[in-house]
Amino acid sequence: MSLSHRREGPDRLYVITSGRSGGADQNLDAVTLIVAESAPTPGMQSEHARILNLCAGPLSVVEIAAHLGLPVTVVRILLTDLIDTGRVTARHPAPASPAYPLASPEVLEKVLVALHNL
């Protein structure tokens, strides 16, 4: 499977992200779930419009990257623009609790039940 940016080259990626390379929201985890809060508007950058269409329901950052055919790094920057302008909201993974740095027993129980039911 060839990702589209291989053909497009680094210049194209530089344009997609408007030259930003250090401005990605550091809270954006690979599995942060993104939800669109508005429909695309005419004249919007096409990658932004595609993300809004994809995220009609919650979708992870890595799924968005796979569907757009863009590296995760680039998608993080695109998403940061959309978060900053309120067009999408982000549901971040819960941080580890001090009492249970690995995972809480409740979460593990939930995963086990779902795996057994697979």
Partner: peptide, 14 residues
């Protein structure tokens, strides 16, 4: 084609 999750899903694990 893109299989969005139910709207109630808020917590992702890996």
């Amino acid at each position: 084609p893109t299989s969005p999750l139910p709207d109630s899903v808020a917590q992702a694990l890996k």
